[in-house]
Design a protein around this nucleic acid. Structure first.
Lengths: 318, 318
DNA sequence: TATTTATTTGAATAAATGCTCACACAAGAT
DNA sequence: ATCTTGTGTGAGCATTTATTCAAATAAATA
């Protein structure tokens, strides 16, 4: 007598056959139904059983495959909206090479939209490189808003002139922030934030349809230090308070909580608010940024990530 | 500036991405279109490009009971080392569809070995299809040797460029045979075989760890005839002498004995020697090849077989 | 045995995919 | 500058595939 097990394995055999005819021989499910002498629906069920039981192995033979896999796993692990992994140069896994092309792609995608959008931007090397990658286009319908002040401590304009360059290229209206990154006192900050144009900038930032920010790390060669926004003692004090990274000046710890620290109280940038519908892209890669990136994701400071293979792997460990 | 090549490879990247999202991640083409920021039709084209460019490799990983059974009986009957039967498309039992996936599996298995191996290859449609199925990998430790000349009668290089393509994909050293398949005279053959590089190729072939050859039939549509290595009168003369098939040019009868025939005396290919420890795979299927396959097995010209269900059944009759 | 419960089936229908065509756009030729 | 020629694009439509649902069948339980 035919046991349950036999039936089962007979069914799997049929599924394998159907799967083979479908995926390898390229038959339609109609043809398979005829050849196997079952109804079309049954053939469909067999094919789908074959895939669900993983009888059919699909492989993608292209270097991108690994990146896609990593992106998928990161999306799952950190609940991201978007995630893009660019291949690492095995010789220079720390390099941010390639991030800019990918980021530029996403920025252009936003800009191609017909309906008017508000796009906000941080600063930094990676974003500047992104903007350099963007093709000139004509998007007067969009508004480009800076999240962060463009005044260097010495009063000069920021060297990473992200939004000006971008606005130039794509002919969109832009709203820079004529502010320092960190005000000299809480009083000054208050006063600055009460200026009409600044207020309206902050309001725009709040309503952003998409945001693109770099993620800085704290510690040696921290960008906030190298660019002169913080001095060595600031950095040390922040590190002692648990700082691992920074986005548009807001310093956060390994869980992604904005530090309760006097320096954070003077940060003049727009607050980091996330609407889960709208992407907030973090762009960063490299050994030194790993804790910062992980924190930013855990604390929901960003919901979309662009990084490289090496960094992605490290983010998946632990 | 973006070169044509860049564009091309960018497009393949996108195709790979789309293919991954479709086949691995199970997205619909609509979703892919949104994620990649293109129209649905373009997404469809990318997916289909991914399959057409053979970026997507599908294999069936299930021992279909009937095929296993057939393989087992063939192994017994003909004393084989390996035997793999792939399902037949009942509508096209003659087709060699599927052999290539299976063959590719065995070839990859050999290539995955750490210790250096010498692998030898014949030519033909099926082997070419096998090579197309193989994933790119990095195996500089192995040597890939051709058993058969790559020069067409008109002096051009063989259309089935099996070992070049393979070596390309897996980055192994390769040793083509810069020879015709059949020399114009015994003297010429002698002379050719005395050339140093050819001699060393033949020596490598003798020491092969595994061999993969197609099996050709003689008669109507014989590959040796269609590819211009033999003319109609040659074929007729060979058939009169009892020819049923051919491997890398060596023509044999239904018992698998290499024919004593003037044409065989001019075959420039490496001799078919079998070390019973090492697999010599024959790949072939179809009505017209049955006598040839049976001969090859009886005469110990091969000791491993990859064929399809239909052919396996016929080989077990009689 | 009667009854319940779970599976399987095919029909209908919804969704997704593939194809054809006309058009737009760019590179190269005239 | 104008004309081919080829390539890529999106719209519309045809085909194929997936899902839903109600009926049928088989298995399990009382």
């Amino acid at each position: 007598m035919a046991t349950k097990n036999d039936m089962e394995s007979q069914r799997l055999d049929d599924a394998a056959r159907a799967g083979w005819l479908y995926y390898v021989a390229g038959n339609t499910q109609d043809e398979i139904a005829i050849k196997l002498g079952v109804s079309r629906q049954s053939a469909q069920r067999l094919v789908s059983l074959a895939t669900k039981s993983r009888l059919i192995k699909v492989r993608l033979d292209h270097p991108i495959a690994r990146c896609m896999e990593l992106a998928h796993r990161l999306t799952e692990k950190y609940g991201l909206l978007n995630c893009e992994i660019v291949p690492s140069d095995p010789g220079a896994p720390d390099s941010t090479l390639g991030l800019s092309q990918s980021g530029a792609g996403y920025i252009e995608q936003q800009l191609r939209a017909k309906e008017p959008k508000i796009l906000t931007f941080g600063t930094g090397r990676v974003l500047r490189a992104c903007v350099a990658q963007i093709s000139t286009m004509d998007c007067p319908q969009h508004r480009i808003v800076s999240l962060v002040g463009n005044m260097m401590p010495d009063g000069s304009a920021s060297a990473y002139n992200v939004i000006n360059r971008l606005a130039d290229k794509v002919k969109a209206v832009h709203y820079p922030m004529p502010l320092p990154v960190i005000a000299s006192s809480i009083e000054e900050l208050k006063m600055l934030h009460e200026q009409k144009p600044i207020k309206s900038n902050l309001e725009l930032a709040r309503r952003a349809d998409a945001a693109f920010v770099g993620i800085g790390h704290l510690g040696d060669h921290a960008p906030m230090y190298e660019d002169g926004f913080l001095d060595a003692s600031d950095v040390e004090s922040l590190l002692r308070a648990g700082a691992v990274g920074e986005i548009v000046g807001w310093v956060f710890d390994e869980k992604g909580s904005i530090l309760k620290h006097p320096l954070n109280a003077r940060v003049a940038s727009a607050p980091l608010t996330i609407n889960p519908e709208n992407p907030v892209f973090g762009l960063a890669a490299g050994q030194s940024k790993i804790a910062a990136i992980r924190g930013a994701m855990l604390g929901n400071l960003i919901n979309s990530l662009i990084t490289n293979e090496y960094t992605a792997e490290r983010l998946l460990q632990s």
